[in-house]
Amino acid sequence: MLRSGALLAVGAATVPLTGCALFDRDEPSPPPDPLEPLADEARALAARHRAAIAADPGLADRLTPIAEAHTAHADELRRLIGRPGPSGPATPAPSAGEGTRSALLAGLRTAEQSGRDNAAKACAAAPGDRAALLGSIAAARATHLEALK
């Protein structure tokens, strides 16, 4: 008796969900562009550099051009994707605003390294008309890594 009661309860709960999914949907949204994660990452990298500048204003001269480059990358990627991204500032990584200068720079280097690898992978997999931009972004992130040394 207990067992069938539980099954009934589950069944009752699933009915409205199914109805919702089948009938209440608007137009199906287009599949996500494979560059979406890279555009989001560019935006997050910009935010991360801005947070580091806020935590240590002495780094502004060094990090501002890098933050601006990431924003320019995000804009170009969004233009290629052809759809606007989320608005408002990206949420910076919680660790971005803490620690000593060397810890801040080490955190940024790790983020740039991983960003560089992601952009290189995207460049390798992209159709020809996207490869040049993705290659420039991968190369730019490698130069950021150098500039953060």
Binding site: P65, S136, T143, E146
Partner: peptide, 29 residues
């Protein structure tokens, strides 16, 4: 891509040696 990246990184190193700022450009190549 490796060649593009190597050139871009060397350009950054040379800018540093020359005392040029910024050390990087937004879209290398």
């Amino acid at each position: 891509l490796n060649a593009l990246t190597d050139c871009a990184v060397r350009a950054t190193r040379w800018r540093r040696s020359a005392g040029l700022t910024p050390l990087t450009v937004p879209f290398p190549g």
